[in-house]
Design a protein around this nucleic acid. Structure first.
Lengths: 211, 211
DNA sequence: GTCTATACGGTGATAGAC
DNA sequence: GTCTATCACCGTATAGAC
């Protein structure tokens, strides 16, 4: 495959033609705009104006507006698929251990791919593209729930609450990070992941042995 | 009170005009549609068709599409304001105790006014109405965060995580209920509230004294 | 390879006539 | 209270400039 049209553009060496945006740059701005204004409320004109080009330029990079959304959702889903795969592997470790690591890793993904994940979490299945994304997400959620079931069965996670509910609550808390976490915040991703892990697995109580 | 708009039930003597929907009925359907399709993706035509009337009939009850949104958001915000007021009162009790009760009450509101709260949680401030709602919501969030600070100061909630972060995580978990809880589910609201309280304050660990 | 100009069919919100 | 006309703007297609 002799480089089919993709990125000869090394920094400092403009290949040819105009100094415009490439597909990845358009996608990045689109995700940002979709998150601020909402997908439906964002017109291709908005995106083009934000990039400083015309609508047609946007349609040069993507076949349709929905195609942009699909690419954005794919970014998030690819990361989450990898998360699930990692959680299912290494089954020599206890489910509880893998669950804790999965929560920590999920926080990392939320932070690193915040914009794409935020978009994914807001999808409501209002089109074929969105429904496909929801289906992939359901698969991921089911795998995470199965991990919780394992941990409950092994006796390392409380059994007085249905595992399905626990799974929803755990990843509901993790996902809620997209609503407020700012990359430039006071506490970094590592501290945040530790906080989530601590609150979830140890509870809110003061750190004391007795009581 | 001479039956305000509802069921005059006098044969052959309609009170006025047609047997159409009243404002509350329109609002209820609107909230449902907004949640399924998204606010922006829902046109007034959609709503009118769903109600079986024309667009203009909808505009008779509400001045604009945004006005419908404002009414919906007000329902949720009114409930949450009451929640905050209750949490701040009774300050003879410990902050931890009031926090636990607030969490339980919040779950109740989420369940009972799920549709309106869901709408509120999706607002991004894309218009004056939405910005006003966001401002009210920020005020509520701040009050809840202050309650957590109190509980930390009293030594009843862990201090190794910033109170602000704890507050976000706690109510992030609570708010995530809107994404999956179905009123007809197997576990009722009371069991759900108990589950959330338990997971948050005791942690996910198996119920055992000796570990 | 990236962008501009232009146009078209469709639909939304809304105002004004009935 | 309802119907209709209007008009702005949407997503998309095509043809060509740099």
């Amino acid at each position: 495959m002799p480089s089919p049209g993709s990125t000869p553009a090394q920094p400092g060496r403009r290949p040819r033609g105009r100094p415009g945006h490439d597909r990845a740059a358009v996608l990045r701005r689109a995700i940002a705009l979709f998150n601020v204004q909402g997908y439906d409320a964002t017109s291709v004109s908005d995106l083009a104006a934000d990039l400083g080009v015309t609508k047609s330029a946007v349609y040069h990079h993507f076949a349709s507006k929905e195609d942009i959304l699909a690419a954005a959702l794919d970014e998030a889903l690819t990361e989450l698929d990898a998360l699930v795969a990692a959680a299912q592997a290494a089954s020599d470790r206890s489910a509880r251990e893998r669950l804790e690591e999965t929560v920590v890793a999920a926080v990392g993904i939320l932070v690193e791919h915040r914009a794409a994940v935020t978009l994914l979490l807001r999808v409501r299945g209002n089109s074929a593209v969105e429904q496909a994304a929801l289906a992939r997400r359901r698969h991921i959620d089911a795998a995470l729930a199965a991990l919780v079931v394992e941990a409950v069965d092994e006796g390392d996670v409380r059994a007085d609450v249905p595992a399905e509910v626990i799974s929803r609550l755990v990843f509901g808390m993790v996902n809620s990070l997209t609503d407020w976490y700012e990359p430039g915040g006071r506490s970094g991703p590592a501290a945040l992941a530790a906080a989530v892990r601590g609150v979830l697995f140890e509870g809110l109580g003061a750190r004391s042995r007795v009581s």
